Computed example of a mutant assay.
Amino acid sequence: WSAKQKSRLIESLLMNIPLPIFYMDGSRMPWKIIDGLQRLTVLDEFMNKNLFALSDLQYQFDIEGLYFNDLPFSYQRKIRTFVIEAYVINPG
């Protein structure tokens, strides 16, 4: 994804816009991601690896150019506690 797309995904979390449901293959451990790998990768890159700063935001201009660690604590908490819905698909 482009930096713009990644940033807008993070912005949507901060605006409480639900993400599409993730799908996992539960036939063996560890689970494999069927749908949602790119979205999970973006979250990992932003929160854990600090690989990109937010850019080209549509609504929350006050956090433009910030990395996860630079965000106000309330925004960090909102991202950390965002609920991700996932379905695990098991055989049969």
Rank of each mutant, 00 (worst) to 15 (best):
K32C: 04
S7Y: 07
S55N: 10
R28N: 10
F22R: 04
N16G: 12
Y23L: 13
I10Y: 11
K6A: 09
I79C: 01
M29F: 03
S74H: 08
A3Q: 11
P18G: 06
D70S: 11
F68W: 02
T81P: 01
R77D: 07
P30C: 01
G36M: 06
I89F: 12
L54T: 06
D62S: 15
D35E: 11
Y75H: 10
I21L: 10
I79V: 02
A53I: 07
K6Q: 09
R80P: 00
K78A: 13
L57A: 03
D35L: 03
K32I: 04
L14D: 04
F73N: 09
S7C: 07
A3I: 12
V88T: 15
F22G: 02
Q38G: 05
F46E: 01
L40R: 01
F73M: 07
N90H: 14
L9T: 08
Y87T: 14
L66Y: 14
F68R: 01
F73A: 08
F82V: 02
L57E: 02
P18D: 01
G26H: 12
L40N: 08
L37K: 13
T41W: 00
E11G: 05
N69F: 12
N16V: 04
L37R: 06
Y23V: 07
Y23G: 02
L40Y: 03
T81E: 10
D70H: 10
M24V: 04
K32T: 10
R80F: 00
F82H: 03
V42S: 01
D62Q: 14
S55M: 08
W31H: 12
D70F: 03
L51K: 15
E64Y: 11
L37Q: 13
F52T: 09
N69T: 13
M29T: 13
I21R: 15
G92R: 08
Q5M: 12
R80H: 01
I33F: 07
Y87F: 13
Q76V: 02
L54P: 11
L37M: 08
Y87H: 09
E11R: 05
D62R: 07
L54G: 04
L54I: 05
Y67Q: 08
D35P: 05
N50F: 09
G92M: 06
E85P: 07
K32M: 09
E64C: 10
K78E: 11
S27P: 05
V42D: 01
D44F: 00
V42I: 11
K49N: 09
M15C: 05
M15A: 10
Q38E: 06
I10T: 09
L14C: 04
D56Q: 10
E11I: 06
E85S: 13
L57C: 05
Y23Q: 07
E45R: 13
D35F: 06
L66K: 15
I10E: 09
Q58H: 09
P72D: 05
S7R: 04
F61T: 11
N90W: 11
I79N: 01
Q58D: 15
S74M: 05
Y23F: 13
L40P: 05
M47K: 09
N48R: 07
N90K: 15
L66N: 07
A53Y: 11
M15D: 00
D44E: 07
K6T: 01
N16I: 00
R8W: 02
G26F: 09
D25R: 05
N69S: 15
W1F: 14
F68I: 03
Y87E: 14
E45N: 12
P91W: 08
